[in-house]
Simulated scan of single mutants.
Amino acid sequence: MRNANHGAYAIYALLGLVWGATYIFNKIASQWLPPMHIVLVRVVMGFLPVLLFALSLRALRWWHLRHLHHFAVMSLLAATLYYYAFAAGVERLPSSVAGMLSGSIPLFSFLGAALFLRGEPIRPRSVLGLACGFAGVMVIARPWSADIAAPDTAGMLFILAGSASVGLSFVYARRFLSPLGIAPIALCTYQLGLASALLLALCDIRQVSAIFADWRAASGLFLGAGLFGTGIAYTCYYYLVERLGAIRAASVTYIPPVVALVIGATFAGESLAAIDIVAAAIILLGVFVMQSSGTAPLRRWRQPRPGRGPEDSAPA
């Protein structure tokens, strides 16, 4: 069992690294493709391994189709809008800054749960953590400064909008999907499948060929951000939920902002001010304070339907 846990923690570290690297892959791809086509490639490439994994587990059921409207909402919140906002934000910002701002996702989850979920206790320590996290966001934005080196406002708003979208998707999943007893890998399959169908209908797929002018950009988007950063990453996440539990697995979301910061500053040569590093630390401190207050909004995901066995769940 100890060796199994060692393997799980190795996958935990790998998952944090892969998710953190997706920002630089998106940044490189943005030189060749507009945000919508970046999202198209990422979602479709992510959908394929998730579908195969779900089929291997026999997690898909015909009765799930009666909840198609919920899957459609999740496909928008946790895939199409989320990835589009991040792609548009990374196009305008250094990948390191975008990665640091993504640390606000748990803050939006908590805020959404406090507003829309009944029975969620609001403790002073939770409010302190929330305020601390958003203070870190404001330090990165520096709205009081006229410095030309300050981050692009539109780019920051895109990243924050994407963080809010995926953060609220967790709240939506808990309120409407958790009581259904549907396996999380099935939920992820449906949302990525619907998002793929929508994007294929909206985008001219022929324009994707432009990225093949640079093999590094193409491999980074198709393999790094798509296959590994979306599809295989989700399958690893569900493995971690099974091995380590939902709470420990969810803590992996603290790693990508740090990884994005290191990759952007070290390997991509992105300039980074000391105040940005302080701001990232403030955001992560706020998330830690909020989570350690005992009010993590998605700590318990599912109340199974009568007659169905309990299953651990996770963000889809």
Rank of each mutant, 00 (worst) to 15 (best):
V90T: 14
A113S: 13
S169V: 05
A131F: 13
L14Y: 09
S126I: 05
F47M: 12
M1Q: 00
P35M: 08
R299D: 12
L130N: 00
L76C: 13
S96R: 03
V50Y: 01
Q303N: 05
M138T: 13
P143S: 10
G155M: 04
G226E: 10
C236E: 11
E91S: 14
G16N: 08
I28W: 08
F176L: 05
V43I: 15
S104Q: 07
W62A: 14
A88R: 12
A113Y: 00
R300M: 09
P151E: 09
P35E: 12
V44C: 11
V171R: 09
T189E: 02
G309A: 12
D204R: 10
R302P: 02
M290L: 11
I211C: 05
L60Y: 03
G269P: 07
W301R: 03
L52Q: 03
K27V: 06
A85D: 06
R302G: 08
I38Q: 14
P151K: 12
P304T: 07
R125G: 05
I159Q: 02
V139W: 11
Y237C: 02
I122W: 12
L111P: 01
A114D: 04
F222I: 10
G7P: 07
M290K: 00
S209M: 07
L107I: 15
L51G: 02
S292Y: 08
G89N: 11
L57K: 15
V41S: 01
T189R: 01
I275P: 01
R92A: 13
L298H: 13
F170C: 11
L33Y: 01
G16W: 10
W32H: 15
Y83D: 02
L223W: 06
L81F: 15
A314E: 15
S145H: 04
A8H: 14
L187S: 04
R118F: 05
A13S: 13
Y254F: 15
P94H: 08
V166F: 12
V73T: 08
S126Q: 13
G264M: 10
Y254I: 08
